[in-house]
Amino acid sequence: MEVVILPDEDRVGLAGAEAIAQHVARRPDAVLGLATGSSPLRVYRELGQQVTRGELSLAQCRAFLLDEYVGLAADHPEGYRAVIEREFVQLVDIDPANVRGPDGLAHDLSAACLAYEQAIADAGGVDVQLLGVGSDGHIAFNEPGSSLASRTRIKTLTALTRQDNARFFGGEVEAVPAHCLTQGVGTILQARHLVLVALGEGKAHAVQQLVEGPVSAVCPASVLQLHPHVTVLLDEAAASRLELRDYYRETFSGKPAWQGF
C-alpha cells in the first residue's frame, strides 16, 4: 500500500487523475472503476481538463460503477448512473454506452447482481478502481460488518447512511432508498489497481484504521492492506491521525519518477 499525503484537495485530484491516465497510456482501452460521492469529483474534473486539452482520451475505455440505489427512477438526478453521467461522462470523451452500473430497477435483483459480476469478468476485469471511504470505514456500500469476501449483492442501507445521503434528496431521509446494489469487497479486490481518495478531517479516523489498523470487517476498507497494488491519496487533514505519516512523506518524496503510481 502506497500512502501519498498531498498539500490540498487540488493536488489530490491531480494525482488521482494521473494514476488513471497512466493506465490509459499503457492500455487505451483500459477498464475503469468509477466511484460516486464528493471525494472523486476533483479527479473527474482533472480528467475532463486533460481530455479538453488533448492530453488524454478515454474514447476506447469502458467503465463500471461501484453501486446503485434500488427502485430509484431511471431519470432521478441522484441515481448513481445520473451522477456519473453529470460528473464524469459529460466531462470526458468516453462513450456513454460503455459505462455500466448495477441494475437497481431489475425485476430479479439477485440475477442482476450475477449478471453484473459476469459483465465485469467479460470485460477482462477492472484495471484501475477509484474508491472513496466512509467515515465509518465503508467502501462502496459495504458497511461495517460486511463480508470481506462478498460479491455484488443487495444491501440494506443503515439509518446513518440514509441520514448522511438525505442532503442529496432535499433533506428528506424517507426519500433516500432503503436498499442498494453494490459491488462486494471481494469484487473490489479483484481490480488490478485500487486508488482511494480521502479528503478532510472527517475521514481521518477511517484513514488511520484502513492504513494502520487491523484487517477487520469492522472497517471494511482495511482489507485493502491485503491487495498488492493500492494507492491511498490524502490531503493533510485526512492524514492527520496516521502514526507513520512522516515515513509516508519520506518514501513518496524519494520515489523514482519512472515508477509512477
Rank of each mutant, 00 (worst) to 15 (best):
Tyr44Ala: 11
Tyr44Asn: 10
Arg45Lys: 13
Arg45Pro: 02
Arg45Cys: 06
Glu46Asn: 07
Glu46Met: 09
Glu46Ala: 13
Glu46Gly: 03
Glu46Trp: 00
Glu46His: 08
Glu46Ile: 02
Leu47Pro: 04
Leu47Gln: 01
Gly48Ala: 06
Gly48His: 04
Gly48Pro: 00
Gly48Met: 03
Gly48Thr: 05
Gly48Phe: 02
Gly48Val: 05
Gly48Ser: 08
Gly48Leu: 03
Gln49Met: 11
Gln49Ser: 13
Gln49Thr: 10
Gln49Trp: 08
Gln49Val: 06
Gln50Val: 09
Gln50His: 12
Gln50Asp: 12
Val51Asp: 05
Val51Glu: 07
Thr52Gly: 11
Thr52His: 12
Thr52Asp: 12
Arg53Asp: 15
Arg53Val: 05
Gly54Gln: 10
Gly54Ile: 07
Glu55Phe: 07
Glu55Ile: 04
Glu55Cys: 07
Glu55Asn: 12
Glu55Gln: 15
Glu55Arg: 14
Glu55Asp: 15
Leu56Cys: 06
Leu56Ala: 07
Ser57Thr: 15
Ser57Tyr: 11
Leu58Val: 11
Leu58Trp: 12
Leu58His: 12
Ala59Phe: 04
Ala59Leu: 06
Ala59Ser: 14
Gln60Ile: 06
Gln60Phe: 05
Gln60Glu: 15
Gln60Ser: 14
Gln60Asp: 13
Cys61Ala: 11
Cys61Ile: 08
Cys61Trp: 05
Cys61Asp: 08
Cys61Asn: 07
Arg62Pro: 00
Arg62Cys: 07
Arg62Phe: 06
Arg62Lys: 15
Ala63Cys: 00
Ala63Glu: 03
Ala63Val: 01
Ala63Pro: 00
Phe64Leu: 09
Phe64Asn: 07
Phe64Ser: 06
Phe64Trp: 08
Leu65Glu: 01
Leu65Thr: 00
Leu65Cys: 01
Leu65Gly: 04
Leu66Lys: 09
Leu66Cys: 10
Leu66Asp: 01
Asp67Gln: 10
Asp67Arg: 09
Asp67Asn: 15
Glu68Phe: 10
Glu68Arg: 11
Glu68Trp: 10
Glu68Pro: 12
Glu68Ala: 10
Tyr69Val: 00
Val70His: 02
Val70Phe: 03
Gly71Glu: 09
Gly71Gln: 08
Leu72Trp: 01
Leu72Asp: 01
Leu72Val: 03
Leu72Asn: 02
Ala73Pro: 11
Ala73Asn: 13
Ala73Met: 09
Ala73Asp: 15
Ala73Ile: 08
Ala74Ile: 14
Asp75His: 10
Asp75Leu: 06
Asp75Trp: 05
Asp75Met: 05
His76Trp: 11
His76Thr: 12
His76Arg: 12
His76Leu: 12
His76Tyr: 13
His76Lys: 12
Pro77Lys: 11
Pro77Tyr: 11
Glu78Val: 01
Glu78Thr: 05
Glu78Cys: 02
Gly79Ile: 01
Gly79Asp: 02
Gly79Arg: 15
Gly79Val: 03
Gly79Ala: 13
Tyr80Lys: 05
Tyr80Trp: 12
Tyr80Glu: 04
Tyr80Asp: 04
Arg81Ala: 09
Arg81Ile: 02
Arg81Glu: 06
Arg81Asp: 03
Arg81Tyr: 05
